[in-house]
Design a protein around this nucleic acid. Structure first.
Lengths: 193, 193
DNA sequence: TTTAATTCTTGCCAAATGGCAAGTTTGCTT
DNA sequence: AAGCAAACTTGCCATTTGGCAAGAATTAAA
């Protein structure tokens, strides 16, 4: 059986028996398009494995504008690590872009696993490292890649985003205006086919 | 006694006794200005607490240009988490900008602490969360803040950098050319003083 | 101290992006 | 199906940033 749990909690030191314990602490939770999963200012007490659907993260700047800060696609964990692990108000809001099927685990249960299963905390550390790598890569891309390349990369890595998220919100994620992104899109079509 | 260890390994669940164990697994290592601490392509097997000094991280792009990806200042941990925790070749090179006094701990010893001291792994998780927060903030700044503001922020947060790092390397970190940063600097002087 | 190399500044012009507003398309609601 | 609102495109022009190259300033070396 290949499940979302096997996909996400994948680590050489996590035996199948442990995986069963882990699975049993997750409860299915479904979200509808537009639902707020974590509100800015609130303190997270859980995270969610995203089985199907698309979720966005955003912040509101001083000018009341919404700035998209990330996307979660299926097979990823919907979470605000600083809020959950430092018990601080979340900076970001997490919102379902489409209907979502997720599996929720609360902090207390996570904590049990973390301290009781060595393989689980090994997995956790790898997960954190991967997150850091991705974020570092994103910062680097903001510096070294053109807006066009960043858009192409997003298409490649998360095509669901282009299908489901308004251009304006994609634009803030890429760091350009919606006007520019519209032109970028046009140029790509002209160039590539 | 207020030491670098107390500063860095600060967590409510880390008693003084544990801190002593932790301290004993660190060995002092000094670097000279220009020394390579971790070379791109190599796999890290340790990290370093930076007591005094300044370290930079950089990558080389397709065009042989050096792109600065980060700075480590005193009280921070010099590390490439993906390389150390996933045993993969480092993307970044870490290099001493000034002479440095550091305290080194190797992976094997870290591993002992991580699995034997619950407070230590609690600390580790918080550390990771903070790193993620900082990096997320940096990505956001790249989008929402002007180059001028990013420069002012760097002055405020890590003034040592401005004193010790060539303008060109600061420029790649901020995502502008050295020409532009030079002009930004001029405007700041004109405006503020 | 003199030379040489690096670092930094500046002028000129090109290229990229932004801001605004009008117009078009799309999709939803009644 | 008609009307409406949201999403997207496009033209015009201003602003920002980049690229190049020359020159000034600083630093290090001989």
């Amino acid at each position: 059986m290949q499940s979302i749990f096997h996909d996400i909690y994948k680590h050489p030191l996590l035996p199948e028996a442990d995986l069963q314990s882990i699975m049993h602490l997750h409860k299915q939770v479904n979200f509808n398009k537009g639902d707020i999963i974590l509100k800015s200012g609130c303190i997270a007490n859980e995270y969610y494995l995203l089985e199907t659907g698309l979720v966005k993260a955003f912040v509101i700047n001083y000018n009341e504008d919404e700035i998209t800060t990330g996307f979660f696609t299926d097979g990823e964990i919907i979470i605000s690590p600083p809020s959950l692990f430092q018990h601080t108000p979340s900076q970001e809001t997490l919102q379902a872009v489409t209907d979502c099927v997720t599996w929720k685990i609360v902090f207390e249960d996570f904590q049990q696993l973390y301290h009781n299963l060595p393989g689980f905390r090994e997995w956790g550390r790898v997960w954190f490292s991967q997150q850091l790598f991705s974020l570092k890569q994103r910062s680097l891309d903001m510096i070294t890649e053109t807006a066009t390349n960043r858009y192409l990369k997003l298409i490649k890595e998360k095509p669901q985003v282009i299908q489901n998220v308004p251009l304006k919100q994609i634009a803030t994620y890429l760091g350009v205006t919606d006007t520019s992104l519209s032109r970028i899109r046009k140029d790509i079509i002209k160039t590539a086919g």
